[in-house]
Design a protein around this nucleic acid. Structure first.
Lengths: 209, 209
DNA sequence: GGGGTCATGTAATAGGTTACATGATTCT
DNA sequence: AGAATCATGTAACCTATTACATGACCCC
């Protein structure tokens, strides 16, 4: 099954499959484990939809109930486990994620591609602001590393943060390299951009009053 | 309105607002223009949902019908234009996109964070495969630049591709730096990873037959 | 007694995708 | 004649999000 034909696209579903590959668990335990491992930092998941996702995984035959526990008068805990199909799907999905680059659509890329709709001076100011904020993000990630190193957690469990850092770092460097062009660029694009927004500014005030 | 309270999150809606900021258009013309400018390369959009999105923009009061044209017996063309609210929303949204970094959730980052669920040798092979594919992606983007340069299009209209290239390049570099660690890493994480999958492999064959 | 955690779920909503349907016009 | 383009829309589906609801148990 390729990504095109995959029904479940919610990353929470993959996270659940991986957890159950480790060992059978009941839903609350899954959420607790993921929270403990801070999976929400690297995987887009909403714990609120856990029970929905489990329904879907059941429907697809990827997991099945193993046993139902009851302690005292508390609600029943249903422990789920992977089916062979689930194990296969987990493997296929994860291997695809790791081995095959897919085009992602970061919002910033969309923003850049629509940048000419902002006045040039404003665009410049916003990008400078972004650079500052990115520096804070970078500090935050590095602080996270420092913390993890103190806890003596092996590097293997933080490679996703290393990746995140590399991406953010690259973005920062990219913007800083881009700024001079937007600022002093003498090509036709920049000229037309400036002209367009000068026109607009001349038009608008008429409407007021 | 911040991203938290925004109702329309479909980037196609933003693209439409920006187009109408340029000039009033009818839907088909919007799609044609976006296609011509290859917006689908940098913005996640499905032209099929254009008419749905336009309904939503109308409902929100961001656009309104300007005039309805009919040529011969063809279907009516409704030309839409921005309302003041639409212009404001466009500006707010775009400025936010450009000026404020938000956490994105690339699938590869999720994959890395779940990597221990794959056998180490396989993970390694997949990452090596990914590097090769990334090199192709990079070549593709660079070929795009060459083409654009021949067309004498100003750089301003390709900065989103430059950004994309920077990100992909950073990812390639990151993986190549990571590989030696996964391969020869002598820390506890790698050791436990190898041990876990050795165990699994020893278990599984029993099930067959 | 109250707050926090354990633990499960339901229901409403809707934004978005996909596929389908229609028909005129223009080009080859 | 037939294919491609112009041009608009509908309708089903449905994943996923959000909010709400429930109640036991435990510790201070």
């Amino acid at each position: 099954m390729t990504s095109k034909t995959r029904k479940l696209t919610n990353p929470l579903a993959l996270a659940v499959l991986v957890l159950l590959f480790e060992r059978p668990m009941h839903p609350y335990e899954m959420a607790a484990t993921m929270r403990e491992r801070r999976k929400e930092a690297s995987i887009k998941l909403h714990y609120g939809s856990l029970y929905t996702v489990i329904q879907l995984l059941l429907r697809e035959g990827f997991i099945k109930a193993r046993e139902t526990l009851r302690e005292g008068r508390r609600p029943e805990k249903t422990v789920y486990g992977l089916t062979p199909a689930g194990r296969a799907e987990m493997h296929r999905w994860l291997a695809e994620l790791v081995g095959t680059p897919i085009k992602e659509f970061p919002w910033f890329e969309a923003g850049l591609s629509l940048l000419p709709a902002l006045p040039p001076e404003e665009a410049l100011a916003l990008l400078e602001k972004r650079v500052e904020l990115l520096k804070d993000v970078i500090k935050g990630i590095e602080a996270g590393f420092a913390f993890v190193r103190e806890m003596k957690l092996p590097r293997l469990f933080t490679i996703e943060s290393e990746y995140h850092l590399a991406q953010v770092e690259a973005e920062r460097a990219f913007i800083q390299k881009l700024l001079p062009y937007l600022c002093n660029g003498a090509d036709d694009g920049i000229a037309r951009w400036r002209a367009l927004h000068r026109e607009r500014k001349a038009e608008k005030p008429r409407k007021k009053h």
